[in-house]
């Protein structure tokens, strides 16, 4: 298969997760690694529901609800910043591991004999699902709620002064973020044909990398002073994912020793992340007129 086409396909499956991480990392400005767990939770709920004979679309909804609840759980652990967000997400990950095991009932569920989405609607359902998730993010972020979520991320203490209860924003934001991760889990299970207890490993970091790279790329293209634009940010998420998968597939094709793959990918990420620092818009006030 063409390397670009392959990367494109992988990006479409991965995009909901990147957008989920974009919600937590860029909009709410907290580091949330829980997606590693809710990704599996989504896949687990979906696979288990299917194997119990639930209709695929209903199974998707169950998985989404599960992911949302996962996000709510993290926000409750973080409640009022009593627990550092990183620690909270690691704790949540810890809990989710058991939850996922209970949901799946075993370490691995195969989907190949079930009536899955692809079985019912064909391959293009994945693209369609991805478009739905994009639509969801656009709706959330361009609404008043989106504005408030961004306010929460930008200046939490001011938000606290203006509205008495900011915890609901944390809850909703992390809920949606993890719901998207679960959605990605569903799509991944669908494409790969199985759900596995360990399939979430490294998802959050890859996602954060994609978000950072993508948004940086976008900001180099659109140097407008108006900072926020849902469309260009989502395009950024997409480009970030695409860059990641393109470089991953290219490196594999060049024949980099797999054991060195993470080193090379990591170095590329660091280079890009360092590059972000010198991006003009990141230095506040430098391009003031």
């Amino acid at each position: 298969m063409n390397i670009f086409y392959l990367a494109l396909e992988q990006t479409i499956v991965f995009l909901p997760l990147v957008m989920g991480i974009y919600l937590s990392y860029k909009i709410l400005q907290t580091t949330d690694l829980t997606v590693d767990g809710t990704f599996v939770l989504g896949a687990a709920l979906y696979a288990r529901s299917l194997s119990m004979g639930v209709e695929p679309l209903v199974a998707v909804l169950i998985a989404l609800a599960g992911g949302f609840l996962g996000g709510v759980m993290v926000s409750l652990i973080q409640f009022k910043d009593k627990v550092n967000s990183l620690i909270a997400s690691i704790l949540a990950l810890f809990i989710l591991y058991s939850v996922n095991f209970q949901v799946m009932g075993r370490a691995n569920i195969s989907l190949q004999d079930n009536r899955t989405l692809i079985y019912l609607f064909g391959d293009q359902i994945i693209l369609f699902m991805c478009l739905i998730s994009i639509g969801l993010v656009v709706v959330i972020l361009s609404s008043q709620l989106g504005l408030k979520l961004r306010g929460f991320g930008a200046n939490k203490s001011l938000m606290q002064k203006i509205t008495s209860n900011i915890e609901k924003f944390r809850m909703l934001g992390l809920g949606f973020s993890n719901m998207l991760a679960a959605f990605c889990g569903v799509l991944t299970a669908e494409v790969n044909g199985y759900a596995d207890i360990n399939m979430g490993f490294g998802m959050a970091l890859t996602g954060i990398g994609s978000v950072v790279i993508g948004l940086d790329l976008i900001r180099r293209v659109y140097r407008s002073r108006k900072i926020f634009n849902v469309g260009s940010d989502i395009l950024g998420c997409f480009l970030g994912g695409l860059t990641y998968f393109l470089s991953l597939n290219t490196l594999l094709r060049i024949g980099i020793e797999p054991i060195n793959l993470k080193l090379v990918l990591g170095v590329i990420l660091v280079m890009l992340l360092r590059g972000v620092g010198s991006s003009p818009l990141n230095k506040i006030g430098v391009n003031r007129e």
């Binding site: 392959l6 691995n108 790969n192 199985y194 596995d196 490993f201 998802m203 597939n249 094709r253 993470k262």
Partner: peptide, 30 residues
């Protein structure tokens, strides 16, 4: 070696497919 990441694992398999190798030998069920 997929190093535990499902994305890398997929890329490896696609890569093998592309190379049109004669036999795939996956270790473990997933």
């Amino acid at each position: 070696n997929a190093l535990g990441e499902i994305n890398i694992q997929r890329s490896i398999i696609e890569q093998f497919k592309h190379q049109n190798i004669d036999l795939m030998v996956p270790v473990s069920l997933g």
